[in-house]
Design a protein around this nucleic acid. Structure first.
Lengths: 196, 196
DNA sequence: GCCTGAAGGCTAATATCAATAGCCTGAAGC
DNA sequence: GCTTCAGGCTATTGATATTAGCCTTCAGGC
């Protein structure tokens, strides 16, 4: 009998596929082992059980999402950057619902890798807010608001929470535009305020 | 041996308590049966398994939350109503994290009771939006935005997603105020726009 | 006060999943 | 070729959900 030739990365990637296809809650070690052609206990040679698997997926998702957001904002500023980032966020979450759900878990305090990955995405938002001349507490408020709105929207959308047959893209664009306008008003920099 | 004297309502209420105390994901029939002093299978005489229990909790939570929001908006209008509703929403979610989480499940299509309960909360928001002279698609956009922002904020807050030690109440107030301003701008009613 | 029947408990059994212990062997390095 | 050990495996335990089917309490009719 030849070996299956698993590695941690192959196990985690297959787990990501399952999570995206059937939902994070249906990602079981049993299903994962079956797809990889091995028995459940064999997976423990590569990942630290269910928790370890989900943690790995979460960390990778956070880093990938941060990179996507970063790419969406290069060469853009202010509402242009916010809009582009918001659309990229929503698109990625839609394309990878399982990974996105996994990424929502806050890092266990002291888990350096997870904390680093979480900070990555926040950093992108901070950089964008600097373009509004928002700093410190003002930037924190803006990021929290933006993140809450994006996360809430994406979550409700993917859970089918928007029942009515009214254009969802339009609702999203208006929400983002409204927030961008609000952030402008929070800045006391005349160069930014003048753009309203 | 005297009977335990369970009823559906008593089972569901104890389930709500467990969910709020230790989290919805830790609400198991085993734990529930133990707290009620019976064996697991006995619960099936009163609720339709785990799914049925969660569904009952969800429906009751939606109705209660709708009532809370309704109370928060009577005698208020526009940004006053939005602010009051938003604060009531956040406060209720914080007080009842398990029930709130249960309420996020979208109703199974065709489940009349659940659909009714879901519509209740949306109706409150619709009524408030009418005060902005927002109707139809504009109202839908506004409700989606508000709901997304509130849900996202509350979820991130309860999951400990806001790491930084910056005043969370202030972030919330600014987000809500920003949205209220945006909604005013969406209205073409001069009487509303003049208030900006 | 009995009889009856169903409601509301129970035990027992099955299935799924996670997790641990410990065996066995393929394959790489010497 | 030998050794070693990483990477598979089987077997087992424990948590949970669920179903089947039994048995007794208790209420209502006679």
């Amino acid at each position: 009998m030849p070996r299956a030739g698993l590695t941690e990365i192959r196990v985690v990637e297959e787990g990501e596929r399952i999570a995206d296809e059937v939902g994070l809650s249906s990602l079981t070690l049993a299903a994962l082992a079956q797809r990889l052609g091995v028995r459940q206990p064999s997976l423990y040679k590569h990942v630290a059980g269910t928790d370890g698997l989900r943690r790995s997926i979460a960390i990778r998702a956070k880093i990938e999402l941060a990179a996507v957001l970063r790419r969406a904002t290069v060469g853009r500023a202010r509402r242009d950057a916010i809009g582009s980032m918001a659309r990229a966020y929503r698109a990625w979450a839609k394309q990878h619902p399982g990974r996105y759900a996994a990424a929502q878990r806050a890092p266990v305090p002291g888990d350096a890798d997870d904390e680093f990955a979480s900070a990555e995405a926040v950093q992108v938002a901070f950089d964008v807010m600097a373009g509004y001349n928002l700093r410190d507490d003002d930037a924190v408020d803006a990021i929290r608001g933006l993140r809450a709105a994006l996360h809430g929207f994406v979550t409700l959308e993917s859970d089918g929470g928007f029942g009515l047959p009214v254009d969802i893209d339009r609702s999203f664009e208006r929400l983002v535009a409204g927030l961008a306008t609000a952030f402008e008003a929070w800045s006391d920099d005349p160069a930014v305020s003048a753009q309203i």
